[in-house]
């Protein structure tokens, strides 16, 4: 049986650090925090160390902390930090540990949050480390699916777009194994899910298929997870130009979709979802961004051992 105290002081580096029951406990807690108005973080200081740009993740964390009565300090790009003077990440986090109760870190290098967590005693939350992992995005994705579809178990989830570099996809695709999902991967060959991820799916016994045609996968999908082709992950701009418009979801394609289909997107969106789709009930991506605040409120309060007041 999972208890709030199981979360206190923990690091959140990959989704693999959490069991199914713990994830469900967090989602239940997020339900309570979505409605709650208490200030359990009064007096707490949370540091946001964003070495790479972010809008949604950083602002939704700052909103979550602010709404719980805590305070955020930090930076939103590496250019304003001592990293430009040659300071190592491990030095930076050891300094900031003295200023705060919890570290939120986004970094372009894979494994950065794991390394940071080894050097400090306060909880570290990975807010994205290169193309590797983004666990709080996964938690809010699961929360969104449960809110929109009404359940998590036994769903057919279609991922489309850049599955090679999309860390939100990498995190979510493996955790769906815990919920007996059927998965369809839609991407051009160059942007396929990495072999390691495919191997992981096989070893977890996940039923999955691959196709390049979104139209084929869409009709019996419960969830469509669209992603942007990320210009910043390509070393060759010509490759980016080739694939940037690989998919575009429009109203015509949705005529073949299930009535209860939920369309998720980690945002930002560029051209992969036509704006006219936004008005359809399927379009859950803006609500998804909003749910992020509730999930992050619950997570931070749990990690700091301050969730009892809201969960009671």
């Amino acid at each position: 049986m999972v208890a709030a105290s199981d979360f206190k002081g923990r690091d959140v580096i990959t989704v693999g650090d959490f069991q199914r029951d713990e994830i469900l406990f967090l989602l239940d807690a997020a339900d309570r925090f979505e409605k709650g108005h208490a200030s359990p973080l009064a007096g707490a200081v949370v540091a946001t160390l964003f070495f790479e740009p972010s809008t949604r993740t950083r602002l939704s964390f700052e909103s979550a902390v602010g709404r719980l009565g805590g305070q955020c300090i930090g930076f939103a790009e590496a250019g304003v930090t001592s990293q430009t003077k040659g300071e190592s990440l491990t030095d930076t986090v050891r300094v900031v540990e003295g200023y705060s109760d919890l570290l939120l870190i986004r970094h372009p290098k894979e494994g950065a949050a794991r390394l940071a967590a080894e050097y400090v005693d306060i909880p570290v939350v990975n807010c994205g480390d290169g193309a590797h992992q983004h666990p709080t995005q996964t938690f809010l994705d699961l929360y969104t699916i449960r809110r929109e579809v009404g359940r998590l178990d036994g769903l057919h989830v279609v991922f489309a777009g850049d599955l090679r570099y999309g860390r939100a996809v990498h995190s979510l695709v493996t955790v769906l194994a815990l919920f007996d999902a059927r998965i369809t991967l839609v991407s051009p060959g160059f942007l396929r899910l990495p072999e390691e991820q495919l191997d992981a799916l096989e070893s977890l016994g996940v039923s999955y298929g691959e196709t390049e045609a979104l139209e084929e996968a869409l009709p019996d999908a419960d969830v469509l997870y669209m992603t942007r082709v990320q210009r910043e992950r390509f070393t060759d701009p010509l490759e980016y130009e080739r694939f940037k418009d690989a998919y575009r979801l429009d109203l015509e394609m949705l005529t073949h979709a299930r009535e209860k289909l939920a369309i998720l997107h980690p945002l930002p969106r560029v051209t992969e979802i036509a704006p006219e789709v936004d008005a359809r009930p399927h379009a859950a991506y803006f609500r998804q961004a909003h749910y992020g605040v509730a999930v992050r409120k619950a997570l931070i309060a749990l990690l700091l051992g301050r969730a009892d007041e809201v969960l009671r």
Binding site: T90, K109, L115, A131
Partner: peptide
């Protein structure tokens, strides 16, 4: 892209 390639660890 691994952090250990750029940090002194």
């Amino acid at each position: 892209a691994c952090i250990t390639r750029s940090e002194p660890v």
